[in-house]
Design a protein around this nucleic acid. Structure first.
Length: 360
DNA sequence: AATACGGGGAA
DNA sequence: TTCCCAGTATT
C-alpha cells in the first residue's frame, strides 16, 4: 500500500463520510443523540453481536422497566434475565447486572467517565468502551465493530484477517488515525451507519456509493472478497432431551449452571445423550429409576426438535409426564405452572412450549 | 492465540 | 445451509 495514496484516500474518505452523515444518513435509533451514559451503555451491551432491529424492542423494555442504573442495580436477577430472554449471549445479561451493581456501590451510581475506567467494567471491551466514551463524553476513541472493519477493509484494500490478533491491531490503529478528534461521536456514528446501510456485508450498494471513485475493493473487483476472515466456524451436534415432569399443577425445573450454553436460564429435567434416542429409550434410563417406583403417565412425546446455534446444533425431544406424588430430583424445584412464565427459558424450550402450552 | 457464547434475518 | 450482526470472556 502506498503511503501517499493512503493519506489522500484517508482525508477524502473522512470528509465524504461526515458529509454523508450530516446530509444523507437517515438511520434512526432511540439512543442516537442520547447523552445519558446509562442508556448508551445499555444499548451497546444489547447490540453486541446483535442486529439493531433485533435489539430495539429489548432496549425499550429495559428502559421502561429500569429507567435508571440504580433501578437496574436493585432489580432481581430472574426478572432481568426474563427481560433478556431470547436475545442470546446471556453472559451479557449477567455482566449487565454485575456492572450496574458495581456502579451503584463503588461509583455512587455515577457512570464512570474515562475510557480506562469504562473499559474495566464487566462486559465492556474495546469496542463498547470506545462507543460509550465517544457518544456519552465525546472522548477521542474510535469504535471498531463489524461495520468498521468491513468498511475499512474494502475502502483501503486491507486484506489482513479481521479475526486475527494482528488484524485487530491493524484495524484499530487505522480507525484511530481516521477518527475526527473534534467530533469523535459523530464520526463513529457515521462510519457504523454507513457500514450498516451502504457498505453492507452481502449486497453492498456500490452503484450509489459516494466513495466508489476511491474504493480500493471496488476498483480492483474485490468487494465480495473483503473483509478476510481466517477462521471457519465448526458446529457440533448435541442431543438435549427434556422430561417435563408434572405433579399436580406444577413442574420440576432448575437453573442452568456451569460453563455451557444458556447459563442462568431454566430448564426441565435434562437427559443429554451422545446420539439420537427414542422416547422409550429415554424412559428406560437408570436416571429415571426413582420414577419407576412411582406411578406415572406419559401425556405427550414430541418429535425431534432442532435449534441452530453458532457452535452447536441442538437436537432433542420433549416428554411430558404426570406423576401422582411429589418426587425429589436433586437440583430441581417444583414450580406452579401459573408462575412458569416468570422464569427465563432458552429458545429451544420456549419454541416447544409455544406449540405445546403447559396448562394447569 | 483460539474458542465458546444465541438467536435471527437475508441470500 | 451459510454468513454475520454496534464483541467479550475465558482457556
Amino acid at each position: 500500500m502506498q503511503i501517499v495514496e493512503d493519506n489522500y484516500n484517508s482525508s477524502f474518505f473522512h470528509d465524504q463520510l461526515i458529509y454523508w452523515h450530516i446530509h444523507n444518513n437517515h438511520r434512526q435509533m432511540p439512543w442516537k443523540a442520547e447523552t445519558d451514559p446509562y442508556r448508551i451503555w445499555l444499548s451497546e451491551i444489547i447490540l453486541q453481536q446483535t442486529r439493531v432491529e433485533q435489539g430495539l424492542a429489548y432496549y425499550e423494555r429495559f428502559i421502561n422497566n429500569y429507567p435508571t442504573i440504580l433501578s437496574l442495580a436493585n432489580a432481581n436477577d430472574t426478572d432481568v434475565f426474563k427481560l433478556w430472554e431470547g436475545l442470546g449471549y446471556y453472559s451479557r445479561c449477567k455482566n449487565l447486572l454485575s456492572t450496574a451493581r458495581q456502579i451503584a456501590t463503588e461509583y455512587a451510581g455515577i457512570f464512570p467517565a474515562t475510557y480506562d475506567t469504562i473499559l474495566k467494567l464487566k462486559g465492556v471491551g474495546p469496542y463498547t468502551a470506545a462507543a460509550i466514551s465517544s457518544f456519552a463524553y465525546n472522548l477521542p476513541h474510535a469504535v471498531v465493530d463489524g461495520n468498521v472493519t468491513r468498511v475499512l477493509a474494502r475502502y483501503f484494500g486491507m486484506d489482513v484477517a479481521i479475526d486475527s490478533t494482528a488484524g485487530k491491531q491493524v484495524f484499530l490503529e487505522k480507525a484511530q488515525r481516521l477518527l475526527n478528534k473534534e467530533a469523535p461521536g459523530k464520526y463513529n456514528q457515521a462510519i457504523m451507519d454507513f457500514g450498516a446501510t451502504v457498505c453492507k456485508p452481502q449486497v453492498p450498494l456500490c452503484e450509489e456509493c459516494f466513495l466508489q471513485t476511491n474504493c480500493s475493493a471496488l476498483l480492483t473487483n474485490q468487494v465480495q472478497l473483503l473483509p478476510v476472515k481466517s477462521k471457519k466456524n465448526i458446529r457440533r451436534n448435541r442431543w438435549l432431551n427434556y422430561i417435563i415432569i408434572q405433579f399436580g399443577e406444577g413442574v420440576y425445573i432448575r437453573k442452568r449452571q456451569g460453563k455451557d450454553i444458556w447459563q442462568n436460564l431454566y430448564e426441565f429435567l435434562l437427559l443429554e445423550s451422545e446420539h439420537a434416542v427414542s422416547a422409550e429409550e429415554l424412559l428406560d434410563l437408570d436416571i429415571l429409576a426413582y420414577l419407576k417406583a412411582e406411578k406415572f403417565t406419559i401425556l405427550h412425546s414430541s418429535e425431534v426438535r432442532k435449534q441452530v446455534l453458532t457452535h452447536q446444533l441442538v437436537n432433542g425431544l420433549f416428554i411430558h409426564l404426570m406423576v401422582y406424588s411429589p418426587i425429589y430430583i436433586p437440583g430441581y424445584e417444583w414450580i406452579d405452572l401459573k408462575k412458569l412464565d416468570r422464569f427465563p427459558f432458552p429458545r429451544f424450550i420456549n419454541s416447544f412450549l409455544d406449540i405445546y402450552p403447559l396448562k394447569p
